[in-house]
Design a protein around this nucleic acid. Structure first.
Lengths: 247, 247
DNA sequence: GAGAATCAACTTGTCATATAAGCTGATGAC
DNA sequence: GTCATCAGCTTATATGACAAGTTGATTCTC
């Protein structure tokens, strides 16, 4: 639901600082930047041929992602990778495919922990209007099985609607980030269009449990749904591994 | 563990943009800024008597918190509050106590969902070194029951250690943010120093289950621990409500 | 020589001004 | 009325200057 204004995968012209931040992050990840010492504003402006203003904003962006620490007088330092903000779509986008793959797995694990409980909570507090919207979305999804992109859009909305029913801004934020990142890898499910029918059935089951205000049922249905997704992810993983071995 | 360099509650001199961003956020929350239209760079630089560079960075900070949207040519717009990044300690700090109270509740709910499962996962994959560190921390905590501040520091480390054992960067990030925010409200537990002894007992129980590599036991122990915390939080809530009624 | 005070060089923070580039709404042609 | 145009607003970037904080070497003191 959020950031819908950016949705249509437009070839977004990013600002200069974002582009430079992307390059710099890739260089850090690849190990070119040694020993935690990040380039200074001046270094950046010279190396990338941009003004100091841009170099400065670049560092500010990286600081907001907990990639670097910046303070007056001190040199900018690269923070330990374990502390970077991997919930940020921006950062994920700059990381190599290998790491993104790992993160997607960890992401899925997170969803497996949270979403069944969210469904159970929603079953207790969901309103009739929300149920109506969920019903609509199920209808729309079954009509969109031929168009995976549009399908996933509604799918995202369906899950977020359930999350929102739990009325918890923290969980909402987490799920939003988690699912946002997930859509970055939509190809995973796109490659298995037959699976969409299965997903539709799962969604219907979740919906029924919510209508019945049945927490246990909702939890179980959501768990089952995620288990199916997990199978898909594993299959995809195997496929890419085989592909890598062939190379 | 992260940001330890900022820990000692120092009267941190924040940069100008951060200060302005704080003021601006408070004004937005209080409803002074009407209809989603945020002040422009020029407005800010005039109203706050700062340069345009600072006004600009202010807006960039707010944008990174998903408080506003900024794009070239278009006026800056305030985003719906539901979409703000409530996982950011910076933002939380600027919100009125009333909202922070709500967020802390939602935060606790999130921990209740995640931490027992994290404990269970940790029981399966935890290393001997981690167990040793956990043991040390328990010892240190029982020695620090008279000093709630220091106690909570170790307490935080104890829980994060368990989280890290699950080896999931996403969950780690979430728990880090969640607990970071939690320490902002340390008074909640500080007011009940007797409760620290109870917490120590809880920690020991969790530790035993982890040593035994018993997922079910770890989950149950963590659940119990959080239930105790939850009672404390509710008590505190009642106290403040009574205090509010007296006013 | 060991330790403390000093300072120069470097770094980030802030300011001022100018120009480029993108959007919006009003104006005016047809 | 419809549509193209454009003036005026906004953000994006560049340049140059100075303030303020940090670091490490130098120097001074004992």
């Amino acid at each position: 639901m959020q950031r819908r204004q950016e949705s249509p995968d437009a070839v977004k012209i990013r600002t200069l600082p974002v582009q430079v931040a992307a390059h710099l992050t890739r260089r850090i990840v690849s190990g070119d930047v040694e020993d935690g010492r990040a380039p200074s504003e001046l270094d950046i402006s010279q190396e990338f041929g941009v003004s100091r203003v841009v170099a400065r904003e670049t560092l500010k962006i990286l600081a907001s992602l907990d990639v670097v620490d910046v303070a007056q007088g001190r040199r900018v330092v690269v923070r330990p990778r374990a502390e970077w903000d991997y919930l940020s779509p921006l950062l994920i986008e700059w990381l190599p495919a290998e790491i993104v793959g790992e993160l997607l797995q960890e992401l899925h694990q997170t969803r497996v922990l949270l979403e069944p409980e969210l469904a159970a909570m929603a079953a207790l507090s969901i309103t009739d209007e929300t149920l109506e919207r969920l019903g609509d979305e199920i209808d729309r999804m079954s009509a969109l099985e031929a168009d995976p992109d549009a399908y996933l859009e509604v799918d995202h909305e369906f899950h977020m609607e359930i999350c929102r029913a739990a009325d918890n801004r923290i969980l909402d934020r987490i799920m939003y980030s988690a699912r946002w990142l997930g859509t970055a890898s939509r190809r995973i499910t796109n490659e298995a269009p037959a699976a969409l029918r299965k997903a539709t059935a799962d969604h219907a089951e979740i919906y029924e449990a919510l209508v019945a205000r049945d927490p246990e049922g909702a939890r179980a249905a959501m768990r089952k749904h995620l288990r199916n997704n997990s199978t898909l992810l594993a299959e995809k993983e195997q496929r890419t591994e085989r592909a890598a071995r062939r190379r």
